[in-house]
Design a protein around this nucleic acid. Structure first.
Length: 612
DNA sequence: TCAGTTTGTCATTAT
DNA sequence: GGATAATGACAAACT
């Protein structure tokens, strides 16, 4: 009942936010038109070229770089022109209004049920996060560089664009060029909406405008996601819709349109009737309302708490804790991953736990003794959990595990951006001999409290490897078991002989694996496999903190390989592993070509026999 | 569960 | 002597 109530509130809030969006988008549209008009007026009298640019609706306003002293003033002026609340609703209505324009010439089209101001021209506005860029240039090391003022930029689709739809999709690979005839995903979405609209019209059922269709789809997927798992297609759709629909919520300029819209209300009160939620503006929650709501929720006597007053176990709010902390674990929702989540929370790694390389600290330094033993005895390596923070590496100095504080250079390609500065620099490093130092930054690589999130993200990718790999090749077992409890060819051959590099007595045994290891192994092996056979070398490269991926190892030139092998901080064991990975990688390609040739020969022979 | 296929890996040889 | 290519054989992974 509580969940139902909350869901109803959520649904209601979603609708109200949608209404609010429409209202806001309408106001912003007016503001945009005025801004455009102002801009047009301000440059009136300039050369005919500029007029022509305006007439052809291809306007790019470029401000000269401001002086340092006038930075704030210019920034403030620029902010006035930043039209940052271009929501999907606006885009959709903009598109729809544009259709309305066309429908005046094509009366057979369905009239809009919304009374929006008409665009006088094709409209395309691209919002760019210049605030972040400004912040970046405000960094101390950028102080010497003038801030390259680039906002605002008004872009409009080329008149020849087939769809005239502002491309707001975050999906790269779709049509970026205005002249590209390829529709964007949003174009396709719009086509789909209009198609459904047409079908509804033919059937005589209620027709839904594209914008309403977006909202409807978003709401439907939201509700569906609460009761069952969405399909991949639905998830992508849901993500896309949410991202677009709520982008204004995360907009760093979110305060501007509000103030601006209030100003517009004051100056043009007659515009109110344009909102689709006519007369309902007063019902829309303001930020102040939300703040009051939050305050009220915190209060014990709050209305929401009273709803659950008889069911404290179902009330995650009553104890004034977050929803995440108060999740009630039941038989139904207690998964192995959640068990792992709990166990990892027991590892006292908090956001305040900072490990620096200068301290030669390991992850275990921030854990208690019991937990440390549990981790050491398990088959799970800390780098499995914290691939983006700290790796356990074997240094050349003492061949003992030591923390490497990652500055990004050791991050691998498992779900991470393919950032290997080393590899990216190979072209130059091979000629200049410059080498990247990888263990440089003593910067506080925070072992974040979202370690479990790292597990969730990383685990899924790591699970793409074979179960046997996950079970037997995990670095702790590999590191900790030179006798190789699992006598497989994987241990005996894929890896260099550890006896040559390790002192057996210094390596803890992996025998008495406790419940933690069992559960972790079960979790790690329960994920979905990636289609196709997976090379183990990528995993090995990651587990042994190699500075490059297995693919890069096998593909790089010999000189680059030599540079890698010369790197400081690489143990002999790691170097041997690199050589083995490279040999396997080369041989893998050779085997493919060999088989291809064999197949070709066979086919050729078959054809010859056929002719004979 | 089993058979067939694909593909990674190792060993070997030659360059 | 090391690196690489080619190839047969084996086995794991996949269909």
């Amino acid at each position: 009942m509580g969940g139902s109530s909350r869901r109803q509130r959520s649904t209601s809030a979603t609708r109200r936010r949608a209404d609010r969006r429409r209202a806001c988008s309408t106001t912003t549209t007016v503001a945009d038109e005025e801004t455009t008009t102002t801009t047009t007026t301000s440059i009136h009298g300039l050369s005919s070229i500029l007029i022509w640019i305006l007439a052809t609706s291809s306007l790019i306003v470029v401000y000269p770089p401001p002086s340092q002293t006038s930075y704030d003033a210019v920034a403030a002026a620029a902010e006035k022109l930043i039209l940052d609340d271009i929501t999907p609703s606006l885009k959709m209505y903009g598109q729809y209004d544009h259709q309305d324009q066309e429908q005046q010439q094509q009366p057979q089209m369905i009239p809009s049920k919304y009374d929006f101001p008409q665009f006088n021209r094709r409209m395309g506005l691209r919002w760019r996060d210049d605030d972040r860029m400004r912040q970046m240039f405000a960094q101390p090391h950028h102080q010497q560089q003038p801030y390259p003022m680039m906002n605002p930029v008004l872009t409009e689709h080329h008149p020849t664009h087939s769809f005239g739809m502002p491309s707001t999709s975050s999906h790269q690979g779709t049509s970026y060029g205005y002249n590209s005839p390829t529709p964007t995903l949003e174009d396709i979405d719009l086509i789909d909406c209009l198609w459904r609209n047409d079908i509804a019209g033919e059937k005589g059922t209620t027709q839904v405008s594209p914008a309403d269709q977006y909202v409807s789809d978003l709401q439907m997927l939201t509700e569906k996601s609460t009761v069952e798992t969405l399909t991949t297609e639905e998830s992508l759709r849901y993500e896309d819709l949410s991202k677009n629909f709520y982008e204004g919520f995360y907009n760093p300029y979110s305060s501007y349109p509000k103030a601006h819209s209030e100003q517009m209300k004051a100056t043009t009160p007659d515009q109110h009737h344009h909102t689709p939620t006519d007369g309902s503006d007063s019902d829309l929650p303001t930020d102040e309302d939300l703040e009051e709501l939050l305050k009220e929720v915190d209060h014990e006597e709050s209305e929401l708490n009273r709803v659950f007053e008889n069911k404290p176990s179902e009330n995650p709010v009553i104890n004034n804790v977050s929803l995440a902390e108060a999740t009630v674990y039941t038989q139904a929702n207690l998964t192995e991953m959640q068990e792992l989540h709990d166990m990892c929370n027991q590892v006292n790694i908090t956001a305040s736990s900072v490990v620096s390389a200068s301290e030669s600290a390991t992850l275990f330094n921030v854990t208690d003794e019991v937990t440390r033993e549990m981790w050491q005895e398990s088959d799970l390596h800390p780098s499995d959990l914290f691939p983006q923070s700290d790796y356990m590496a074997v240094t050349a100095q003492n061949n003992t595990p030591e923390a490497i504080t990652s500055n990004g250079t050791f991050e691998h390609a498992y779900g991470l951006p393919p950032i290997s500065p080393l590899s990216l620099d190979f072209a130059s490093s091979s000629s200049t001999g410059r080498q990247q130092q990888t263990q440089t930054s003593p910067a506080s690589a925070t072992v974040t409290a979202v370690a479990t999130q790292g597990i969730l993200e990383y685990e899924g990718q790591r699970n793409s490897f074979s179960d046997s790999t996950t079970d037997s090749s995990s670095p702790c077992s590999g590191m900790s078991s030179p006798s190789y409890d699992h006598e497989s060819r994987f241990y005996g051959k894929l890896l260099p002989h550890r006896e040559n590099f390790f002192d057996r007595s210094s390596i803890p045994s992996s025998r008495n694996n406790g419940a933690v290891a069992t559960k972790i192994n079960r979790v790690m092996s329960s994920g979905q496999r990636k289609r196709g056979r997976q090379s183990k070398d990528e995993q090995l490269a990651s587990e042994h903190s190699l500075p490059v991926t297995a693919h890069q190892i096998s593909e790089m030139s010999l000189s680059d390989l030599q540079n890698v092998l010369k790197m400081d901080g690489l143990s002999e064991y790691q170097k041997q592993l690199i050589r083995k990975i490279r040999r396997r990688g080369k041989n893998k390609v050779a085997a493919r070509t060999c088989r291809q040739r064999r197949t070709d020969r066979h086919d050729k022979q078959t054809n010859m026999n056929h002719y004979i």
